[in-house]
Simulated scan of single mutants.
Amino acid sequence: MQPLFLKPVFKEMIWGGTALREEFNYDIPSDKTGECWAISAHKNGDCTVETREDSEYSGKTLSELWSTNKELWGRAGEAEVFPLLTKLISAETDLSIQVHPDDEYAKAHENGSLGKTECWYIVDAKEDATIVIGHNAKDKAELHKYIENKDFLGLIREIPVKKGDFFFIEPGTVHAIKGGTIILETQQNSDITYRLYDYDRLQNGKPRELHIDKCLDVIDCPFEAKEPEHRKAIEFEDGSLVRNMVTCSLFEVDYVKTETTVSLSQNTDFTLVSVLEGSGKLKSKDNSEWKIKKGEHFILPHGFGDYALTGSLELIISGSR
């Protein structure tokens, strides 16, 4: 059994830049590139499999494999669509202040789409960088008042951020990535975003669409900051580390740092891996090896089993639940 290496899909954005090329050496489409859809089977950005050996999977899209090769996915493959989406997001300037719906609202209002629960690992951030998480309205009436008065700076809750931070963002949470920040996002397989405010900026001479009514429907009031549920970190004598960042009903996400070798067990039906720093090797239980390096993303299919990561590496590893 072999890992499924993926060719990312890149998205140009009004707030994008060149950091994905500078940081990860990607061949980006323009100097306004904001997103790398690194592991995606979504119709708006479907990754292609690029295995390193002769394989029946090479050249197929991830959505195609999800539909036709159920042996790769275990029980998770019973779902209609691939459950997760992994992105690298690079913000040259601020993203819109926004919110996402939950599954129930998205199903009813967005043609049966999944909602969007997501989480962010901060890959890099400029000095004094901030992000928006949450708001200051005590109830819906006060939320209406903030919006009617266009007092969005008074509404939002802005907090400092640095490399290595992690945030779990449930549906209904007002949020925004701000300029000078690169994140690795693990999310439900959804492309539904409701914009609350976009700084009155123009795209092609026109303001981008806002979704005020839907925002009012789905924003939770009041906002309550919560620590995500997670397991205890595992530290090794050589300085290696396995830190579970969140375990929720939809997915779990681990940060892994290797100094020599870390041995891991596949504890979800299949495993998503993104290499954020360094280079090394992936070794399977049958002693097969693959070289891996910064900027690569791959899936360990169902049944890959125990595996080892060797070298100097930083990775985000996730799986659906």
Rank of each mutant, 00 (worst) to 15 (best):
S58C: 06
V253L: 12
G59W: 05
S96N: 12
G179W: 11
Y146R: 01
H230E: 02
P301F: 13
Y199S: 02
E127I: 05
F10I: 08
I182C: 10
L95F: 09
L272Q: 03
V161P: 03
R21D: 03
T93W: 02
D165L: 02
T130P: 00
G278M: 11
N287M: 08
K281C: 12
R231H: 08
L315Q: 06
I192E: 12
I292P: 01
K257Y: 07
K32P: 01
N204L: 08
D198G: 09
K107E: 05
Q98K: 10
P3M: 12
Y146E: 00
G45I: 02
G311N: 08
W73Q: 11
R243L: 07
K140D: 06
N287V: 01
G34I: 08
L155H: 05
K145Y: 01
Y26N: 01
S190T: 15
I317M: 14
I192Y: 01
K163E: 08
D254N: 14
R231G: 12
M1D: 10
F5C: 14
T193N: 01
E22M: 05
I159Q: 03
E277H: 13
A125N: 09
K116Y: 09
Y26R: 04
G311L: 13
Y146M: 01
S320I: 15
Y121V: 15
K293S: 12
D213N: 15
E185P: 10
S318D: 06
I131M: 11
S284V: 12
G112Q: 09
S113R: 10
L241Q: 02
H297F: 14
E12T: 13
Q2R: 15
L62H: 05
M13F: 04
G77Y: 03
G172V: 07
N69W: 02
T193C: 01
T61G: 10
E170I: 00
S55M: 14
G180Y: 01
T173W: 02
H135N: 07
R21E: 05
K283D: 10
A106Y: 12
K257F: 07
V81P: 00
N44D: 10
S288T: 08
E80G: 00
F152C: 00
G205M: 12
W66M: 12
V273G: 02
S113A: 13
E158G: 04
E237W: 05
I212Q: 00
D139R: 06
H211D: 05
E170L: 06
N267G: 01
S40P: 02
D213K: 15
V242P: 00
K281R: 13
G112Y: 11
K60S: 11
T18W: 04
E170Y: 06
H297Y: 13
L65S: 00
T68F: 02
Q203F: 06
L282E: 11
L153W: 09
D124V: 03
H175C: 13
Y57M: 11
K107R: 05
F236I: 06
P83I: 13
A129Q: 04
V161K: 04
V161D: 04
I39D: 00
H211I: 03
L264Y: 03
F166S: 07
D286V: 12
V132A: 05
V262K: 10
E185S: 14
T48F: 05
D102N: 15
